[in-house]
Write a protein that binds this DNA or RNA. Structure first.
Length: 929
RNA sequence: GGGCGGAUAGCUCAGCCGGUUAGAGCAUCGGCUUUACAAGCCGGGGGUCGCAGGUUCGAACCCUGCUCCGCCUACCA
């Protein structure tokens, strides 16, 4: 410190996050044992595609701002990192990358490739998060394919099976013909397509010609009924008739249902096996015939007659042509219609029927709405999305996927009677394909000893929905190595001490230090105790005691409210009756410059690594802090560059302080004016008295010597009898601090950084430093006392301001802490230091009125200099200040030293002879060069 | 169809529980470099607060309607 620094271009800014010199990661071991826990259910990103862009950097940073703040507030941070690497997204990625045809590769080969890509992905992510300064505890890492997650998912399955909240059903399900798997409603998005509504002629058994409108003529062969509205007098006479289907010539009954719109088409509706959700509903309610013509491959089967083997899409064209040849298409109308597509591949989904495992959810919507009401939503309007989704769910949750790479079901079937044999908890995790059930050799129903393994895997959300349970080691997983599985004992458990009292008690660093020293480093390691869980007791007692569960915060993106968030609520309600987390923080999207959502596939992708390389991680985080919670944010390289400017400004502002403290070396007791030098003498005495070093983190290297004559804690800042500008600065700082804390408490980090930034630029740099710095150019000892006062104030304000910046700008704040502030402090990292306590006694409203006079004169002075083409540091011989207001005159006289310093004037002449031309202005100034 | 969010300077945004002359950054124009910072500092110009009504002494802010953008949601086959 003290050397002139041009902004380094190294990455990360000033400080290598991988080195030990920079405490940027979670270090909860140093937090006091009695601190309350703040646990974070960190979103596990899909590692498969290494698709991270600045939008991801944005959302992870935003959550992390809050977490760093909470850490400084004294919370014991439980901040794990998960990687979502099982399931369809990974499979799709591997399929694309290796151009795999699923039917030509073995399950094992495919899984190996998935695992390989997973490993690569995890490393890529970890490197980036570290470069970005994301302070997760890497000892708390999980991957959704690891043993712990498999065990947790399987345990959940078993427990819900026992509670009859998992069911095996054979009913129509949503099917992706491309991925060849069943899906859940949440995997589907509705897209609008251009379609054609065909009016097709049918014939009734009494030879009446009937026109029926449909968008899916290819399903004629699957038609099982014709519907009309019971109030539609046009068709009541068809009650007992049969209708002959064109081309196929089979006949179907006429049925009536209120849901049929008389206005739509001709008021007749063709119901098939199953063209859409409405068909399924009528099939269920009216117990219709079943005529399946679509195969899982998406091709028509033998029941489609001549159309066998043709894909659904092509069949439509062929059948329309054939109908036209028969002159049975009476009209065509273009329309927009909504089609469900698989959100992973964009393929239009179909309904087919195969046995699947389901978690019933339709009957418990009320519970889920109620749970949603219990959560604190940030921002509040995001709750609407949850409510609407829950209210609109149509299907129970199908958790079976006909895929390879996922968590297996802990299930076998009796080869004779098909009875499911469910694994017991003590044999989890289990893969039924490679092992037999341990608890039984024979089918409990028929005594057969031949079992068929369930080959389906679970929906990826079956695991992701368990993240709070994974984090709290609900499944009692004991890892055989140290690298996987959580160590929840890192969170201390001591409820006997009132947490809030202790946090209040740690008002400053000295107090903090005292407490730190009293920490019982013998952190309770309870890993082994976890083994003693009563396996039937699934009430999360351990995690609850450690306050991991329910988790404190769930940060996540808006588009997975209906999946991750909803399913986690479902699981938590079913397993515990409780909500899985208390607070939900929903981030917006990173957009490209033109306002489109950033994604790799669209090519509007900005790689965070490049931005970090060019501008530093702190600068990127500065950009990320610009978006209010829940708001989308356009990527702007200019804003990142502004972030970098802020870093340089902070660096130089601290350098000013450090340099001037360093120059105290040139002071000596005999050149100080005794009348004004009590404080300086005290400092100098300290510097000369070895015992005085006890309050320092002192060692004898040169760097420490530079600052050894300064002790910011010699006297409390409130007792220094400060001039108005210093009181004003402290007042403005305390107000900033208060606001900033309030913003953080309500998750409004963007308002927080704006508030600190405004204070730092406008109040501290542009005005306070400009007013005061002239004093530091004075060599006369007469100014020594004023210098010491100012240094104390600058130390207090700049250090605490840096703390307010620390959650946003972890690298530079740590670097400045280690290279400068740490000479006077004891904590090992600024990120483990205590958030400043608001000190009302430092508020001095009258100082604001007084300093406003200085600021008015300074503003006039700056304009005058600009008009006179004088540079801002040019010394003027005389500054004339005129005012008609006696109070202002008095203030000017009282503050004359600071006004002269601010305006670089050698002499100040004050006059009340306001004969001037300044109109309504209270003060008028002029210069004599 | 229903809902949510947004529309303020050339650009990106703040301000919004009503209250002087609507702010910031960037861009632009002009000036200024030994004394924290030229990757800097100082100053200037620039706005019918989406449109139309209403409430009020007073509206960017509250109410009603509309337009456009983004998103969520929806069985019209």
């Amino acid at each position: 410190m003290g050397e002139r620094q041009n902004a380094p271009m190294t990455t990360p800014f000033f400080c290598d996050s991988n080195s030990n010199s920079c405490s940027l990661n979670a270090e909860n071991a140093d937090a006091p044992v009695f601190s309350p826990t703040f646990s974070i259910d960190t979103p596990p990103p899909y590692v498969s595609s290494a698709h991270l862009h600045v939008g991801h950097a944005m959302s992870y940073s935003q959550a992390e701002f809050i977490i760093r703040y909470k850490r400084m507030k004294g919370f014991n941070i439980f901040y794990p990192m998960g990687f979502d690497d099982n399931g369809l997204p990974t499979e799709r990625y591997v399929e694309k990358k290796y151009k795999i045809n699923k039917s030509k590769i073995t399950r094992d080969e495919f899984i190996d490739l998935c695992l390989k890509e997973t490993k690569i992905g995890i490393n890529t992510y970890k490197e980036l998060w570290q470069a970005l300064g994301i302070s997760v505890d890497w000892d708390l890492t999980y991957s959704t394919i690891d043993g712990k997650c498999r065990k947790t998912s399987q345990k959940s399955f078993i427990e819900l099976y026992d509670k009859k909240l998992v069911e095996r059903r054979n009913e129509p399900i949503i099917w992706c013909p491309l991925c060849r798997t069943s899906l859940a409603q949440a995997d589907i998005t509705i897209e609008e397509f251009d379609g054609v509504l065909y009016d097709i002629e049918f014939i009734s058994s009494s030879e009446e010609k009937l026109i029926i409108s449909t968008t899916r003529p290819e399903l004629l062969g699957a038609c099982v009924a014709i519907y009309a509205n019971p109030s539609d007098s046009r068709y009541l006479h068809l009650k007992d008739e049969l209708i002959k289907i064109p081309i196929y010539n089979h006949t179907v009954p006429v049925k009536f249902d209120e849901s049929v719109e008389t206005e739509y088409g001709t008021g007749l509706m063709m119901v098939c096996t199953w063209g859409d959700a409405e068909d399924v509903k009528k099939w269920k309610e009216h117990k219709l015939e079943t005529a399946i013509i679509i195969e899982p491959s998406g091709k028509l089967n033998e029941k489609a007659g001549d159309y066998k083997g043709i894909s659904v899409k092509d069949a439509k064209k062929v059948i329309v042509e054939d109908l036209k040849k028969l002159s049975l298409i009476k009209n065509e109308k273009k329309l927009k219609h909504n089609v469900g597509i698989h959100d992973r591949c964009g393929t239009a989904v179909e309904f087919i029927q195969t046995p699947q495992w389901f978690i019933p959810i339709l009957d418990y919507k009320d519970k889920f709405i109620e749970a949603g009401n219990k959560l604190n939503w940030y921002p509040a309007f995001m709750k609407t999305r949850y409510d609407e989704w829950v209210q609109n769910i149509k299907w129970d949750w199908n958790i079976s996927r006909q895929r390879f790479y996922g968590v297996p079901f802990p299930v076998w079937y009796c080869s004779r009677c098909n009875q499911p044999i469910i694994a017991k908890e003590d044999e989890l995790p289990v893969d039924p394909v490679v092992s037999r059930p341990k608890h039984t050799d024979i089918c409990p129903i028929c005594g057969n000893n031949e079992f068929i393994p369930e080959k389906d895997v679970m929906d990826t959300w079956m695991t992701s929905s368990m993240t709070p349970f994974i984090n709290s080691n609900w499944a009692n997983f004991v890892s055989d190595d140290n690298n996987s599985g959580h160590n929840i004992s890192k969170i201390n458990n001591n409820d006997n001490i009132s947490n809030s009292d202790n946090i209040k008690g740690r008002a400053d660093n000295i107090a903090n230090d005292a407490i730190n020293k009293n920490i019982n480093n013998d952190i309770i390691v309870k890993n082994k105790n976890i083994d003693n869980y009563n396996l039937s007791d699934t009430n999360l007692n351990e995690a609850k005691n450690k306050k991991i569960f329910p988790m404190t915060l769930r940060p996540q993106a808006q588009e997975i409210i209906r999946t991750w968030l909803f399913y986690t609520v479902v699981k938590s309600i079913y397993h515990t009756g409780n909500i899985p987390f208390e607070n939900v923080m929903i981030s917006g999207w990173g957009l490209d410059k033109s306002g489109k959502k950033m994604s790799k596939s669209l090519g509007n992708f900005v790689a965070p690594e490049e931005i970090i390389e060019k501008y530093s991680a702190d600068a990127l985080r500065y950009w990320a802090a610009k978006a209010n919670l829940g708001q989308d944010l356009r990527f702007s390289e200019e804003d990142v560059a502004n972030g970098r400017r802020l870093l340089i400004k902070i660096w130089n502002a601290v350098r000013f302080l450090a340099t001037n403290i360093d120059s105290l070396k040139s002071f000596s007791a005999d050149n100080v004016d005794n009348a004004d030098s009590e404080l300086l003498n005290a400092n100098l005495a300290d510097a000369n008295n070895k015992d005085g070093y006890n309050n320092y983190n002192y060692n004898n290297d040169d760097d420490n010597n530079k600052y050894s004559r300064f002790n910011p804690y010699k006297e409390d800042i409130s007792k220094l009898n400060l001039p108005a500008v210093d009181s004003w600065l402290l007042t403005e700082f305390e107000k900033t601090l208060k606001l900033c804390g309030e913003y953080f408490e309500s998750y409004e980090y963007s308002s927080a950084i704006r508030t600190v930034g405004d204070f730092f630029y406008n109040i501290y740099c542009d005005n306070y430093l400009e007013i005061i710095k002239n004093i530091f150019w004075e060599e006369s000892p007469l100014f020594n006392n004023r210098k010491i006062q100012s240094l104390n104030v600058m130390y207090y304000v700049s250090f605490n301001t840096l703390k307010l910046f620390a959650p946003f700008l972890p690298f530079i704040s740590e670097e400045l802490y280690l290279s400068f502030y740490k000479h006077f402090e004891t904590g090992k990292s600024i990120h483990l230091s205590v958030w400043p306590e608001y000190r009302h006694e430092l508020i001095n409203e009258s100082s604001i009125k007084q300093v406003n006079v200085i600021l008015a004169i300074l503003e006039s002075s700056r304009k005058l200099r600009t008009n006179l083409n004088l540079h801002q540091n040019h010394k003027v011989k005389r500054l004339f200040a005129y005012s008609a207001d006696e109070q202002i005159i008095e203030t000017i006289q009282n503050l004359s030293a600071d006004i002269m310093s601010a305006c670089r004037a050698e002499e100040l002449v004050v006059s009340n002879k306001a004969d001037f031309r300044a109109g309504d202005a209270d003060i008028y100034i002029s210069f004599e060069n």
